[in-house]
Amino acid sequence: MSTVTIYHNPSCGTSRNTLALIRNAGIDPTVIEYLQTPPSREILSGLIKHAGLSVRQALREKESIYKELGLDKATLTDDQLLDAMEEHPVLINRPFVVTPLGVALCRPSELVLDILPEPQRGPFSKEDGQAVIDQNGRRVN
């Protein structure tokens, strides 16, 4: 079985849908609830780099603390943004997924399909009812 890790927030619908898509492929991933067990700075930097993102792209702007800390200032360095994410893990955008095929910030949740090492095993719809995978395990357009 392939090794898959998801940095998960169970309160986030996108994260829950991503986890469900992983499991729909028959994969039992390592689930890291990153608000309880935040990734180290080194791991976080690696996730961002391997996902092909900038630090700012991995920053969750919807949290109130984002504005409170003034993180919208374009003059802030990557180190300053990482400092904020390290101190306040809620600022880490989610979910990051790591598989043998790559790393992705799975927003929207369907992005996980591009890096899963196993095919989908059956139909899947998101929590809101939107069909993503048909009865044959194929992606719905």
Rank of each mutant, 00 (worst) to 15 (best):
M1A: 12
V4K: 08
I6T: 01
N9Y: 02
P10T: 05
P10S: 12
T14D: 07
S15K: 00
T18R: 05
L19M: 07
R23Q: 14
R23A: 06
G26H: 01
D28C: 06
P29A: 08
T30I: 15
T30S: 14
T30N: 06
I32L: 15
Y34T: 07
L35P: 11
L35N: 14
Q36G: 11
P38S: 06
E42F: 00
L44F: 05
A51W: 05
S54A: 11
S54E: 08
Q57Y: 11
Q57P: 14
L59V: 15
R60Q: 12
E63W: 01
Y66Q: 01
E68A: 11
D72H: 10
K73H: 12
T77G: 07
T77D: 04
D78A: 03
D79L: 09
Q80V: 02
A84D: 11
M85S: 10
E86Q: 06
E87G: 01
H88P: 15
V90I: 14
R94S: 06
R94F: 12
F96G: 02
F96V: 04
V97A: 06
V98W: 10
T99W: 02
T99A: 13
L101N: 15
A104G: 02
C106V: 13
S109R: 01
L111Y: 10
L113A: 10
D114G: 11
I115W: 13
L116Q: 03
L116D: 02
Q120K: 13
Q120M: 09
R121L: 13
P123V: 02
S125R: 14
S125Y: 02
G129Q: 08
Q130K: 09
I133T: 00
D134P: 02
Q135R: 12
G137T: 00
R138T: 14
R139A: 11
V140T: 05
